[in-house]
Amino acid sequence: MRHDQHQNGPLEPQDVEELLPWYVTGRVSREEARGIEAALKTMPDLAEKLAQVQREREAVSRAAEAVEAAPPETLQRLLQQVETTRQRRVQRADNRDEAGGWLKGAMSHSVIWQAAFAAACVAIVALGIRLYNPPAPGDLTGGINGSGRATLLVTFQPDATAADISSLLAGAKAVVTGGPGPDGTYLVQVPASQPSDVEAAVSRLQSRQELVATVRPVQ
């Protein structure tokens, strides 16, 4: 509000009209309200304009009130995501504590310990490389169960919407059976009777990079 302009004099007719939408909701200053009330006594057509604003307000409010509540799963999804991020925070804090303590201990000892520390670092890197060993394209055999379904580990892009994910999964006849894990991974089952079906399902999901960040079969 232009308090600076209004406080020392009567409101201009244009100011009064501009403020009417906020006057009807009680969101003008006391000074402005007094100015509008004074203008209502002197401007013959202002009462009708005020009535028009009130009709608009009623229409907007009624239409907004008629909007049904958000689907209940919106809150469930939110709480699930909140829990996931909370666990990540705790995990990060734990990792920092462990790494900090370990580094501090390692750095405070003798040369022998420094050598051991270096060796440990090399071992960790090697272990990381070994752990990060994605299956070769022709190696997608695992996870087909007796009921003709295979399980995939899928992470979705952070900005993928629930609607888009639902549509993607429906198109692939896939269902989410678990997750999200602390890293945001979901267990997704797809119909598969042979390894090539698993490969096809992985390719199909991988082709939607705007929605799917990673996908790999559970071996």
Binding site: M1, W22, T25, R27, E56, V60, S61
Partner: peptide
């Protein structure tokens, strides 16, 4: 702007 003023009842500021 209509929603925020009329239904949510926020001030201009």
């Amino acid at each position: 702007v209509l929603q925020l003023a009329y239904f949510q009842e926020f001030s201009v500021g």
